[in-house]
């Protein structure tokens, strides 16, 4: 088909060229051509651009057919099951985080996740005014010890934490974390929602997606657990959330999915603490710029109105009977 279209376009190029040549040749002989000839010329002239377009599109399609498709290193199963889109309330354009859920999610993180996963980019001070009060945050900071600056003898001592300190990590460094987890590194969760394809949906699906037992035929290596949402399906982390694992202080029932939802919303906050402010600012910018746009349209019409409403007066030319302007040109033959 491609070949045929290419041939056709080539033929039409030839036809158009012939047509153009005949036209230039015939012009001196007859200045006015017949109506039939005009019609014939018009379909021939459209054939050239049409053919060229078909040829261009066809060759791009052919190239894409050969080289343009994705090359996947992994099968869909190895990529992991695609998570469903959940109706997150806090991801709507006009909604903030539910700070009660953030508080519950932080509790889940502290009581469950924090035994393996760090949250090293979150300082205590950012919890103040979002998740807990100043006094609660101070008390929590003081539960942990941090290194001091070197003293007079150059020794580093321990001091209780302050609000400017960051949340403590469960392991001293990555090597210690690997050693404690059969060589698998529990990633830092501070930016996890932004770092993973699928974001909140992925983390929620992963936390709640552990089946009772791996499906028949699935090969689960020793020391790994089966999770269809994890790329490769073999994940070192076992299922951690079970009903009533934590006790919420606001009386919410701690089901598995409730805990997963809360901790995912909390992790979304930790990855994007500026979200509330960002959305609010965005709405304000949209409001101001849309009013500005309307005003500028009005001002443009106002400024252009003298030009748009002007009227041109045409007086028919005064023709002296004796001469036309063409007669004054030096070359009288045309």
């Amino acid at each position: 088909m491609l070949v045929r279209s290419a041939l056709r376009s080539a033929r039409s190029v030839g036809a158009a060229a012939r047509n153009a040549a005949s036209k230039t040749a015939s012009r001196p002989a007859s200045t006015s051509s017949s109506a039939a000839e005009e019609a014939a010329a018009s379909w021939k002239t459209t054939a050239l651009p049409a053919g060229a377009t078909v040829f261009a599109i066809g060759s791009v399609a052919w190239y894409f057919h050969l080289y343009g498709r994705n090359v996947d290193a992994m099968t869909p199963a190895e990529e992991g099951l695609h998570p469903a889109q959940y109706p997150w309330e806090h991801q709507k354009w006009h909604k903030t985080f539910d700070h009660g859920a953030l508080r519950r999610g932080f509790q889940v993180y502290r009581e469950v996740c924090a035994s393996c996963h760090s949250l090293a980019r979150i300082p205590y001070r950012s919890l103040v005014g979002n998740i807990m009060t100043v006094d609660e945050a101070k008390a929590m900071a003081e539960e942990n010890e941090y290194d001091t600056e070197p003293n007079d003898e150059g020794e580093i001592e321990k001091r209780p934490g302050k609000l400017s300190d960051y949340l403590p990590s469960p392991y001293k460094n990555d090597e210690a974390a690997r050693a404690g987890n059969n060589g698998a590194l529990p990633p830092d969760l501070s930016l996890m929602i932004k770092a993973r394809h699928g974001g909140a949906n992925y983390v929620f699906s992963l936390l709640t997606g552990y089946p009772e037992e791996p499906p028949a035929g699935a090969a689960v290596p020793e020391g790994l657990n089966f999770n269809p949402y994890f790329p490769g399906t073999g994940i070192a982390m076992a299922r951690v959330l079970y009903d009533d694992l934590v006790e919420y202080d606001d009386g919410t029932k701690a089901t598995t999915s409730q805990m997963a939802k809360d901790v995912v919303e909390f992790l979304h906050w930790s990855a994007e603490p500026e979200m509330d402010e960002r959305k609010k600012m965005g709405w304000k910018v949209l409001a101001v710029t849309s009013v500005l746009f309307a005003l500028s349209v009005w001002v443009k019409r106002y400024k252009w109105s003298p030009i748009k409403t002007r009227k041109l007066v045409y007086q028919p030319p005064y023709s002296p009977p004796q001469s036309s302007i063409l007669s004054k040109l030096p070359n009288k033959k045309l």
């Binding site: 806090h90 006009h94 903030t96 985080f97 005014g129 609660e136 606001d250």
Partner: peptide
Amino acid sequence: NKGRQWKDIKQRY
């Protein structure tokens, strides 16, 4: 966003 922001729930704590 009534009831979602910290200033709405901080009274409890």
